[in-house]
Amino acid sequence: MFSNKLRNQITKKPYPNQSMKSNLQKQRFAAISAIGGFVPYQKRTNKDLELISDTSDEWIIKRTGIKERRILENGFATSDMAVEAIKNLAEVYHKDLRSAEALIVATSTPDMPMPATANIICQKLNLNTLWAFDVNSACSGFLYALDLGASLIESGRYRNIIVVGADKISSYVNIKDRNTNILFGDGAGAVWLEASSDEGIIDAVLRSNGSGKDFLNIEGGGSLYPFSDESFQDDKKYIKQDGKIVFKNAIQGMRDTCIEVMQRNNFSVQDIQWLVPHQANQRIIDAVGKEIDIDQHKTLTNIKYYGNTIAATIPLCIWENTTVLNKGDLILLTAFGAGFSWGASLLKWTI
Rank of each mutant, 00 (worst) to 15 (best):
M1P: 10
F2S: 01
F2P: 01
N8G: 12
Q9K: 15
Q9A: 13
I10H: 13
I10L: 15
T11Q: 13
K21W: 10
N23D: 00
R28M: 11
S33T: 15
S33Y: 06
K47M: 11
L49T: 02
I52V: 13
D54Q: 11
D57G: 02
D57N: 12
I61G: 00
G65T: 14
I71C: 08
L72E: 15
N74L: 08
S79G: 10
K87Y: 00
L89D: 04
H94Y: 10
L97A: 03
R98G: 03
A102M: 13
D111S: 09
M114G: 03
P115H: 11
A116S: 15
A118G: 15
N119L: 06
W131F: 09
S140R: 04
G141Q: 11
A145E: 12
L146T: 12
I153G: 13
I162C: 05
D167V: 11
S170H: 02
S171C: 03
S171P: 00
V173A: 04
N179C: 01
N179R: 05
I182C: 10
G185V: 05
A188M: 10
G189I: 07
A190R: 00
D198H: 05
E199I: 15
I202M: 14
A204T: 15
V205G: 01
R207D: 03
N209W: 14
N217T: 05
G222D: 08
S223L: 08
D234H: 10
V246K: 05
N249L: 02
I251P: 06
G253I: 08
M254V: 12
Q263P: 01
R264D: 06
S268D: 13
V269D: 09
N281T: 03
D286P: 00
A287V: 01
E291L: 00
Q296I: 14
H297M: 01
Y306T: 04
W319H: 08
I331H: 08
L333K: 03
A338P: 00
A344G: 06
A344P: 08
S345Y: 04
L347W: 07
T350S: 13
